[in-house]
Simulated scan of single mutants.
Amino acid sequence: MKSTPLACAFAALFFPVIASAEAEPSGVRTNTARLMTTDAAEVIDAPVLGLQRTAIPLFAGLAVDTSLYADALLAPNLGLRWALAAGPHRVVLGARYTHFVGASTYSGIVESEAPAIQSFEPELSGPSFYGVYGLVLGPIQLQGEARYGHYTTDYLSFTGGAGFNFAGHWSVVAEAGVRVEGGSAFRAAAGIRYGGEGLGFGLGAAYVDLSDPALPGESLPVLPVLDLSWTFR
């Protein structure tokens, strides 16, 4: 079958555009808008069921979400998140309220394991607020997060993160930051993420420094980070 002059002109005009789109990196995508331990500068555009985040988008970048991890650990929580993507720039603002219902359960465990402690009553209920700015540079995404929480004691943290999309939907991510009030002074995490059209997966490790003065000698500074999700596109 011979090509007509019109078809040849059409192909010459649009083929470079198509080839460029296919060659362009897909960029960093996590499926749940989470890196390792911080929020990722992404817009949630479809319902997602995940361990780190389960969310339902509403309108104009707004989404309601919860953390199934925290829910399972007897800390039911509900958040509202707004995100905007403008060219390479990403802006995210969010708030969350957590109501801790596991005080008696955790108190019983700690007091039975450490008889020297006569009373242990954790209080983890309260609001938290965060903001994220991200910059997308092809396969690289850079971002910074500020987070404030008001629980038993207030805390304020600043964390920088970076992701690199190295193949298909696979990306490596890393975080480092400081908590300037309450908790650890230094925090960091690194791992790998897969953000496909449906399936999402994350695996890594986080330095969180869980040493507690109430439990002398007990310290678990590094914890695994695991995420599994499905996005309903």
Rank of each mutant, 00 (worst) to 15 (best):
P5A: 14
A21E: 14
A21S: 13
E22H: 01
T32I: 11
L35T: 07
M36L: 15
A41H: 09
E42G: 07
E42S: 05
E42H: 05
I44P: 00
P47E: 04
P47D: 03
P47Q: 04
L49K: 01
G50Q: 01
L51E: 00
Q52V: 01
F59A: 15
G61F: 10
D65S: 05
D65W: 04
T66Y: 00
L73T: 10
L74I: 08
R81D: 11
A85Y: 06
G87M: 09
V91K: 03
V92F: 08
G102Q: 01
A103Q: 07
T105A: 04
S107G: 10
A116D: 10
F120W: 15
E121S: 13
P122L: 12
P122V: 15
S125H: 00
G126Q: 10
P127L: 13
Y130G: 04
G131R: 11
G131T: 12
G131C: 12
L135D: 01
V136H: 03
L137H: 08
P139W: 11
P139N: 13
I140G: 07
G144P: 06
G144E: 13
T153N: 12
T153P: 01
F164V: 14
H169R: 10
E175M: 12
V180M: 08
V180Q: 05
E181M: 14
G183T: 14
S184E: 15
A189E: 09
A190L: 14
E197Q: 06
G204C: 11
A205T: 09
V208Y: 03
D212E: 14
P213E: 10
A214M: 10
P216Q: 07
P221A: 10
V225S: 05
L226P: 01
S229K: 06
